[in-house]
């Protein structure tokens, strides 16, 4: 396992008020592992502990075999971290930010201009970051985390505040990196990105992991399969959803189909958000 976490606890107030409690999970090499949960669920706290930004108070965590409590600085040569917050030097231009950051590493780094081009920032390369929009800053933070071509990549809400086209571009880059063997730890409250990208998802709420599984398995286990049908009775068009695990509803749908009254028929799956609500009792917002 490239990331291994056992019995992780963290309290910001150094008491029993834990921001994360008894968190256990492991991530395989080349996997995209998603941490799905609402704001304040403990996603960023876990990521901060793993990247050394918060001290490991209780439990065990290792990255690529290195205990995060004693991880050497050189380990960061193989790690990339993209923050949700646009923490770049506002007085430096986009390219200056990347050039500066590339000098911090002891390994070969990627070409800053090529990276900016990947996220459509090439025309703003020489513009100071203080003049960037929120979305541009988010893209700059994202490509900065790629500068050392990381083996393990931590992404915190990578598509937050981005328009659908740019978000799609970012998702493509993430998929491409996975194909090249990068392990990705992704924290998000966006069920679509989690569903689309992640091999495995941990549902986290109030500091605790409720479930870990692949999106498909989660849907199979916890999602209720539905059929949405539009049919006519006495000339009147009706819309109805039929559960595929409820015998009565299956029979009712069969009856409608037999009578040839169906206008449209669609299968429907439960969304991750519905599953999240079912498991945790609260929504993702």
């Amino acid at each position: 396992m490239i990331i291994d976490v056992k019995g992780l606890y963290h309290s910001y107030t150094n008491d029993d008020n834990y921001a994360v409690k008894d968190v256990n999970f492991s991530v395989k090499k080349g996997e995209i592992f998603g941490f799905l949960g609402p704001s304040g669920a403990g996603k960023s706290t876990t990521q901060k502990i793993l990247t050394g930004l918060l001290p490991l108070q209780k439990g065990k965590a290792s990255i690529d075999g290195n205990n995060v409590k004693k991880s050497p600085n050189r380990l960061f040569n193989t790690i990339g971290v993209s923050f949700e917050r646009a923490n770049v030097y506002k007085k430096l231009t986009g390219i200056e930010n990347l050039e500066f950051y590339s000098k911090m590493f002891n390994v070969k780094t990627l070409n800053p201009l090529k990276l900016l081009r990947m996220v459509g920032l090439e025309n703003a390369a020489n513009k100071r970051a203080e003049g960037y929009s929120k979305g541009m800053l988010q893209r700059l933070v994202f490509v900065r985390s790629m500068i050392n071509d990381p083996k393990i990549w931590f992404l915190d809400e990578p598509t937050s505040g981005l328009d659908p086209t740019t978000a799609s571009k970012i998702k493509e880059i993430i998929k491409d990196k996975q194909r090249k063997g990068t392990t990705i730890f992704l924290t998000t409250h966006n069920m679509h990105i989690a569903e689309e990208l992640c091999d495995n998802i941990a549902l986290i709420n109030e500091g605790e992991i409720n479930l870990i599984d692949s999106p498909r398995n989660l849907k199979l286990k916890y999602g209720e399969k539905l059929i949405k049908a539009e049919y006519k009775i006495n000339g009147e068009l009706r819309k109805e959803r039929f559960s595929m695990i409820n015998k009565e509803e299956i029979d009712k749908l069969n009856e409608i189909i037999k009578k040839g009254k169906v206008e449209t028929l669609h299968s429907q799956e439960a969304t991750l958000e519905e599953i999240f609500i079912k498991v945790t009792g609260r929504g993702l917002k």
Binding site: F83, N87, Y101
Partner: peptide, 16 residues
């Protein structure tokens, strides 16, 4: 730098 959060980005690099 603290306000901009750039020190966090530096701390996840090999720089000390």
């Amino acid at each position: 730098e603290k306000d901009q959060g750039t020190i966090e980005a530096y701390r996840v690099s090999p720089g000390n």
